[in-house]
């Protein structure tokens, strides 16, 4: 696969380390594929040749032709991943970068998780928690190919049940779509999140309260996060990719002063 008809595509680093933008006929959000040659869920892949710099002042000694290595990127669809939508929407800080440890709550089949795994790279770790057995199987399958993903099939409401499997993390990403999700995030933060670590929560207004106005629901959730000692930093709606969704980013502060 790759860019259609071999047209020129230029990869540029995104503002967030580990995320890239492919500039071709249209601009696409991409991540560097951790397992080149493999797609996770049928997403498009783009291969780009990066000529490796030849040591010395130039390849005068004829026998060493500059070797071109291919780097593969995977297209990240903002209509399928809320984190991608949030990044395109202009989140200031996603709190994950190469080397980060991320606790991902509501991992589902692991499509978005695979992109987070690309971002944190081989030196990072993604602890992917999903309760549903059906999607859990897909998640485990995906994790067999990506060794920086640790699949955890368990209820995120009970972080103590998987306390042996998780270390302290730099960031918690939550896409659980449960009425008590602020509490779920808080429980996990108290247990596993480093002081000063990031919390990125996707809120679907309908899942919290389908009768209230979305803005009111978001405001209430932010208050609940504050009570869990998470200081909100930014909030943004996921329009036009999702309707009545908001992304809230906060920082965990354990000390009360």
């Amino acid at each position: 696969m790759g860019a259609k008809g071999g047209q020129r595509v230029v990869i540029e680093p995104h503002r967030h380390p580990g995320v890239f933008v492919a500039r071709g006929k249209e601009d696409l959000l991409v991540t560097k594929n951790l397992t080149p040659g493999e797609a996770v869920y049928g997403e498009k892949r783009i291969s780009v040749e990066t000529p490796t710099a030849v040591s010395g002042d130039g390849a005068v000694n004829g026998d060493t032709a500059p070797v071109a290595t291919k780097t593969e990127y995977r297209v990240w669809n903002p209509f399928r991943s809320k984190l991608a939508a949030g990044i395109l929407g202009g989140l200031e800080d996603i709190h994950m970068k190469p080397g980060s440890k991320v606790l991902y709550l509501g991992a589902a089949s692991g499509t978005s998780v695979s992109h987070v795994a690309d971002i944190v790279g081989p030196t990072g770790t993604v602890f992917a928690v999903e309760f549903s057995h059906r999607s859990g199987r897909d998640l485990i399958n995906m994790a067999t190919h990506r060794t920086n993903v640790i699949p955890i099939i368990e209820d995120a409401r009970h972080p103590l049940k998987y306390r042996m499997l998780v270390s302290m993390v730099d960031c918690i990403f939550a896409d659980v779509a449960q009425p008590d999700q602020a509490r779920i995030v808080g429980l996990n933060a108290h247990q596993f999140l480093k002081v000063g670590g990031g919390v990125v929560v996707s809120i679907k207004a309908n899942c919290i309260d389908s009768t209230a106005a979305p803005e009111a629901v978001f405001a209430r959730e932010v208050v609940k996060l504050r009570e869990e000692r998470i200081k909100p930093k930014e909030q943004l709606t996921l329009e036009p990719f999702e309707r009545d969704h908001a992304m809230v980013v906060g920082v965990y502060q354990r000390s009360s002063s």
Binding site: R137, L139, I150, I153
Partner: peptide, 21 residues
């Protein structure tokens, strides 16, 4: 620790969903 977590995470989760390779 991370290697142990990886192995244990897979073993624990596979047992939960009765996953077979």
């Amino acid at each position: 620790v991370s290697r142990a977590q990886l192995g244990l995470g897979h073993a624990y989760s596979r047992a939960k969903v009765k996953f077979s390779v």
